[in-house]
Computed example of a mutant assay.
Amino acid sequence: MHPSTPDERLRAFGNQLIEIHLWLREELTRIRDGLGEPGVRPRDLRTHCLAFCAALTRHHTGEDAGAFRVLADRVPELAPVLRELEADHHVVAGILHRVEELAEAAAPPAEVRAELDTLAALLESHFVYEEKKLVDALNALTDGTTEGLLGVPVPPPDPE
């Protein structure tokens, strides 16, 4: 892993995980809120949806290859938790694939919303569990980068 920059280490990795999860929740809410809204073009919604799916996939792939491997080596008692979280990532990937198919096919908003509602419920449970089990261990890490461990950089603050 590459050494972290001073700015990255101002916030511990576990805290950064929470920030990434908050951002992903907000993005998913924006997509769900945009479904069926007058004036929202299907193309814009599809683009936003596909970008979200890609970001979530990068995050989970990054965790599997980064943070989870590091934690498995340094905190072996977390191995069962890490296996559960990786299994969740596979379930989420299946739902994301379905969402991408629906978005590409410009499926009816109700159909897309149902799939996104399923995704939102699963992610909420997954994120809460992951944060409860891993934040302290991630905060104890002293090397690595956010992107290397968590798959994505911490999103910038929302300008709103």
Score class of each variant (00 low, 15 high):
residue 74 R to P: 06
residue 132 K to I: 10
residue 142 T to A: 12
residue 12 A to L: 15
residue 133 K to N: 07
residue 8 E to C: 07
residue 20 I to P: 00
residue 151 G to P: 06
residue 102 L to H: 11
residue 66 G to F: 13
residue 106 A to V: 14
residue 156 P to G: 11
residue 69 R to N: 12
residue 2 H to P: 12
residue 15 N to L: 14
residue 6 P to W: 09
residue 34 G to H: 05
residue 143 D to Y: 12
residue 133 K to P: 00
residue 141 L to P: 00
residue 130 E to A: 08
residue 76 P to L: 06
residue 129 Y to P: 03
residue 146 T to G: 00
residue 61 T to V: 11
residue 24 L to T: 04
residue 129 Y to A: 15
residue 24 L to D: 05
residue 109 P to Y: 04
residue 105 A to N: 11
residue 102 L to M: 08
residue 4 S to V: 04
residue 30 R to N: 13
residue 101 E to R: 01
residue 93 A to I: 05
residue 50 L to Y: 02
residue 17 L to S: 01
residue 2 H to T: 14
residue 112 V to N: 09
residue 121 A to C: 02
residue 134 L to V: 12
residue 49 C to I: 05
residue 160 E to I: 13
residue 6 P to I: 10
residue 101 E to N: 00
residue 140 A to C: 07
residue 69 R to Y: 10
residue 141 L to I: 01
residue 100 E to D: 10
residue 153 P to E: 13
residue 154 V to Q: 03
residue 51 A to M: 04
residue 111 E to G: 05
residue 149 L to G: 03
residue 36 G to F: 02
residue 87 A to V: 07
residue 27 E to V: 02
residue 110 A to I: 00
residue 94 G to I: 03
residue 130 E to T: 04
residue 113 R to T: 12
residue 60 H to K: 03
residue 40 V to P: 01
residue 113 R to Y: 11
residue 134 L to A: 07
residue 117 D to I: 00
residue 34 G to K: 09
residue 88 D to I: 10
residue 103 A to N: 03
residue 41 R to E: 15
